[in-house]
């Protein structure tokens, strides 16, 4: 249940899997993303509402074949240049995209967690996303006849999140901005949770989400595992690191140096990464 991070990633994240590393600005599982790069996973379908710096890194390292998402940027800073390079230039490999809105993605996870095949929402009407994304359809309400958007359930092979705490039985507790993590874990076939610490007893915290151990496949203790994002009650968001990422992200060579220095991973091989 409680395993080292390298073992957790090796056991639970496989080549070709659909993987969701979720976190809405807060509690982003950055260390787990770096371990996925270090282990050289390939052909992943990455899912995330807000792919940010860690997805820029995983995409830049050539681990991903597809991205399912609703907003891909460096929050408060600008664009993700590894993500851009993959989409605009196919470097280091082409990245297929499936693009939604936040409301659509949130409802896709809710449907996945709820065990139903699709979700309905008021959304997308009149936007060009409808023409580009085959997983956006329209349904007629059987009661009122109203036309609404329909989006299919998301059921990742594995969801990876970061949380503040777990107990020794593997119950997981997170609080602050809890985003979409509960739905993403409940929608997934397997889950890996990195935590700041393991404690004997999970003292209740206002606004907490508690994930019972039966929906958590493995926990890894990784203090600081969400940096440069933050863990409410533990450490603050390192806004300077997000700003500094921009320069690294813009340049393939600077990114290759980052991979070597920070991850100990080889530079991506264009076209051969798959």
């Amino acid at each position: 249940m409680i395993v080292p991070l390298d073992e957790g990633v090796r056991e639970l994240v496989h080549d070709g899997d659909t993987v969701a590393l979720e976190g809405f600005t807060h509690l982003i599982p950055v260390a787990a993303g770096h371990e996925i790069i270090r282990q050289g996973r390939r052909d992943l379908t990455l899912v995330r509402m807000t792919p940010d710096v860690v997805y820029d890194q995983v995409i830049g390292a050539g681990c991903a074949a597809r991205l399912v998402f609703s907003w891909g940027g460096n929050p408060g800073v600008g664009s993700l240049h590894r993500f851009r390079d993959a989409i605009q230039n196919g470097w280091p490999r082409p990245l297929e995209i499936e693009e939604h809105s936040h409301a659509g993605m949130a409802n896709r996870y809710v449907a996945g967690a709820s065990g139903v095949p699709f979700a309905v929402l008021r959304g997308y009407a009149g936007t060009d996303l409808v023409d580009q994304t085959p997983t956006i359809k329209t349904v007629e309400c059987p009661f009122t006849g109203e036309r609404l958007a329909a989006v299919p359930a998301l059921n990742p092979d594995v969801t990876v999140i970061h949380a503040q705490r777990a107990d020794r039985a593997g119950n997981v507790q997170l609080w602050g901005i809890t985003g979409i993590q509960k739905e993403a874990v409940l929608a997934a076939r397997r889950s890996l949770v990195t935590v700041e610490e393991v404690v004997d007893r999970l003292e209740p915290v206002p606004g907490q989400v508690l994930l019972p151990s039966r929906v958590v496949t493995a926990v890894s203790v990784v203090p600081g595992g969400a940096r440069p994002s933050y863990a409410h009650g533990y450490y603050a968001r390192d806004n300077a690191a997000y700003q500094a990422w921009d320069a690294v992200s813009r340049d393939r060579d600077a990114f290759a140096r980052w991979l070597a220095d920070e991850i100990g991973a080889p530079a991506p091989l264009p076209g051969k990464a798959g």
Partner: peptide, 25 residues
């Protein structure tokens, strides 16, 4: 002033913090 839409200061000073599905739905 927050840099991102999810800076900690937004949660600390909110009337309440709800999940992402809840804010949209």
């Amino acid at each position: 002033l927050p840099l991102s839409i999810g800076d900690g200061v937004l949660a600390e000073t909110a009337d309440t913090v709800v999940s992402v599905p809840e804010v949209f739905n």
